[in-house]
Design a binder for these strands. Structure first.
Length: 195
DNA sequence: TAGAGGATTGAT
DNA sequence: TCAATCCTCTAC
């Protein structure tokens, strides 16, 4: 079952970021289906400096200001596409960066996209999982209950005690907001990014 | 219209 | 530790 629009509305962005752990992200790009269990997320809000939305609406981040349940995809460092899930109501710009997956379906397709022979760590990082899943900026603004990219409510059950909270990665410019423990991972999962 | 820099990655 | 690489955003 695809998660409905209501999943993405009406909870704090950190609560939804935690609820996304264990869910399944699925893409169908050029008729190729790939999927993976979400094992790492980061929450971003217009209220804090770590977020693209902090300084207000721009052409790049306008999807963040729309109603929750859409994909926000942008180019980072001119090299990598990043996939985010937009949450909550219009104007309350919040989004969740999907940072790591445990591959499920279409692993052969992922290997081909990544030019790799082994699936080890193939989706352990936001840039890598976007590429492996075939996600690019053409999906920016796409609703997550249509037929290109969606999230399913099965996967694995994550107990609250199995969720680890830490500061987010790569946002030193955010000052003390960089210390917010808004990065969530499944405890001891081998697919999470970095160390 | 120019200049700076980034929610990363992989190689050195 | 560092380069790749291309937008976006800001300031002039």
């Amino acid at each position: 079952m695809k998660l409905a629009e209501s999943f993405y509305i009406g909870g704090s962005v950190t609560t939804i970021a935690k609820k996304l752990l264990g869910k399944i992200l699925v893409t169908k790009i050029n008729n190729k289906v790939t999927s993976g269990i979400i094992v790492e997320t980061e929450a971003y809000s217009y209220k804090e400096r770590g977020s693209h939305a902090f300084k207000g609406l721009t052409k790049r981040n306008e999807v963040m200001f729309e109603r929750g349940g859409k994909a926000y995809v942008y180019l980072c460092y001119g090299v990598h596409e990043m996939f985010n899930v937009v949450t909550n109501d219009e104007r309350k710009a919040e989004a969740i960066l999907i940072r790591a997956l445990e591959p499920l379906k279409g692993i052969d397709i992922m290997l081909e996209r990544m030019n790799k022979n082994s699936p080890a760590r193939i989706t352990s990082g936001p840039g890598k999982l976007a590429k492996a899943m075939g996600i690019d900026r053409k999906l920016n603004g796409e609703e997550l209950w249509m037929n290109k990219i969606w999230i399913e409510d099965k996967g694995i059950k994550i107990k609250p005690t199995d969720i680890v909270s830490r500061p987010r990665i790569g946002i030193d410019y955010a000052g003390e907001d960089a210390l917010l423990p808004w990065r969530f991972t499944v405890r001891e999962n081998k697919w999470i990014s970095k160390k």
